[in-house]
Design a protein around this nucleic acid. Structure first.
Length: 528
DNA sequence: GTTGAGCGTT
């Protein structure tokens, strides 16, 4: 029951009707087949008269809440460094960084080609993503038989990034596209940024619209209830990185963009010495927090079900084993799977990785001004507990992560004699902070029990930790929709974060299939 | 004529 969506290249152009998939989404490849170079869709919202962007996630364009309707959608094309001139607060080093964004194309290897696919077919397939400079299918010199892989080179970097960010159904087989000899991790740099100092009137759409001018935004997440921050995920990690450290004005509010991962922290600690090039990014072991590890709703967490090689064994400092958590965690120990999965761009179960610097939340290690009493600030609460954040030689986010993961929440809760229930958990399952590297292991504290409320209505530390944890949990839950190439099958835990219908097998029709192996997968897609 | 992890005759 594919419906058709009206898409025009631009205002005034005649629309073309494009078929949607069974799940209601429109494949970017379908769109790009008619409008080469397109990177997204937008439409005019009849109610607000504003232009709205269409959600793009893993190569699928998702309909607006009330369906595609009769709207005419317009193509969005990559902006070639076209910048609007409203960035007064731009920081020049960041700008320089962005200018340095590497735009070089390299040859890409395509693995898993059907034996029958010709160079011409290969070229035609990839031309929908942009100009193809070279397409080769490697063949046996004697028989002329394809070896099942080939190479391709694009003229522009946007195309290359987009192509590497997803898998490709070519002639009935799912193929991987990678940089040759790159061990297969398509992305080495986080695509997600933390946006602090948000106000409540800044919507996800606002963020998406605003940041789309820098590059394709694949996901926006605003924790609910309101937490004064958001996460924005870009298709291009370079864009994300380049924006970090900048202030931006959105709806007359100055927001601050910073890294969603404390990568720089462990870099500075010299943990990255042996980082391989092109390898699996040294992400923390996605330990305690998040639906995967908590056994939470898998339909929110992306790849909680685990796909790809397990990496977290607790030995490698960057693959800190998934802790699974203590009493609060009840994890299924899938953290390591997520952490090491090649599909983990969305980072279904990242925990402290996403911790913002507390400063961006307006929480500093210094005493609050004005001599207010009973404000319930973190600082006050910690001071009550005899802990001074500012005195610790650490990044505040790390402190919070440590508190959270090492079970200090319980400790502080006890020190404060506040409700211990809300702070329990975490401890026994943790240990990753020290042992497995900066962010491995660790359980989700505060998972059980009512939110601890300090005496006299003063929010307690436990409450704060709970607050932070919840933010992380919901954040982690939402990250499943971000980026990340999608395995072709829709096993358990593979659904989209926005709560849409489960992705069936990528080809229409057929019952869900439990894949036993890659071979089985591919055989199921053989068209003949 | 078969195959399905890998890495490019020139």
């Amino acid at each position: 029951m594919a419906s058709y969506i009206q898409v025009a290249e631009d205002d005034g152009e005649e629309p073309i009707e494009l078929p949607s998939e069974d799940d209601g989404t429109l494949l970017l490849s379908t769109l790009a087949a008619q409008f080469p170079g397109t990177c997204g869709l937008k439409f005019r919202n009849p109610e607000t008269k504003a232009i709205r962007g269409v959600r793009l996630c893993e190569g699928r364009l998702h309909p607006p809440e009330d369906g595609w309707g009769q709207n005419v959608y317009y193509c969005v094309f990559p902006k070639e460094n076209k910048r609007k001139s409203d960035d007064h607060l731009e920081n020049s080093t960041a700008k320089t960084k962005r200018m340095e964004t590497k735009m070089k194309c390299s040859d890409l290897i395509i693995l898993g080609l059907p034996w029958k696919t010709s160079e011409q077919q290969l070229r035609e397939y990839f031309e929908s993503f942009g100009e193809v400079l070279m397409a080769q299918v490697k063949k046996d010199s004697k028989t002329g038989q394809s070896k099942g892989f080939g190479f391709i080179r694009f003229a522009n970097h946007e195309s290359q990034i987009r192509v590497m960010a997803q898998r490709h159904l070519i002639d009935g087989r799912w193929c991987d596209v990678k940089v040759p000899n790159s061990k297969g991790a398509p992305q080495q740099v986080p695509c997600k940024v933390f946006v602090g100092r948000c106000t409540e009137d800044i919507s996800a759409d606002d963020l998406r619209e605003y940041f789309s001018k820098y590059g394709e935004v694949t996901d926006v997440f605003i924790p609910k209830p309101f937490r004064a921050f958001a996460f924005v995920t870009f298709l291009d990690p370079d864009i994300a990185q380049a924006l970090c450290g900048e202030d931006h004005i959105i709806k007359q509010t100055s927001v601050h963009v910073s890294e969603a991962s404390p990568k720089s922290d462990y870099q500075q600690r010299g943990y990255l010495n042996q980082q391989q090039t092109g390898g699996v990014p040294p992400r923390g072991g996605s330990g305690g927090v998040g639906p995967g590890a908590r056994g939470g709703p898998m339909d929110k967490g992306g790849y909680g079900g685990g796909y790809g090689p397990p990496a977290g064994n607790g030995v490698h400092p960057f693959h800190g084993g998934g802790g699974g958590g203590g009493p609060g965690g009840s994890g299924n120990n899938m953290g390591g799977m997520n952490g090491g999965s090649p599909w983990n761009q969305g980072n279904a179960a990242r925990s402290s990785i996403d911790m913002p610097n507390l400063q961006t939340l307006g929480i500093t290690g210094q005493a609050p001004p004005g001599g207010q009493t009973g404000t319930g600030s973190l600082t006050n609460s910690l001071a009550l507990a005899g802990i001074n954040l500012g005195a610790l030689p650490m990044n505040h986010a790390l402190v919070a992560a440590a508190l959270n993961q090492a079970g200090w929440g319980g400790l502080i809760g006890n020190l404060q004699n506040t409700n211990p229930n809300g702070a329990e958990g975490g401890g026994p399952g943790g240990g990753g902070f020290n042992q497995a590297g900066a962010f491995g292991g660790g359980g989700q504290g505060n998972a059980n029990g009512p939110p601890p409320q300090g005496p006299g209505g003063t929010p307690s530390v436990g409450n704060f930790l709970n607050w932070m944890s919840q933010a992380q949990v919901v954040a982690a839950a939402a990250q499943g929709s971000a980026g990340g190439p999608q395995p072709p099958s829709a096993g358990p835990g593979n659904d989209q974060a926005q709560g849409g219908p489960p992705n069936g097998p990528p080809q229409p029709g057929g019952p869900p299939i439990v894949w036993k192996s890659r071979q089985d997968k591919q055989q199921n897609f053989h068209s003949n």
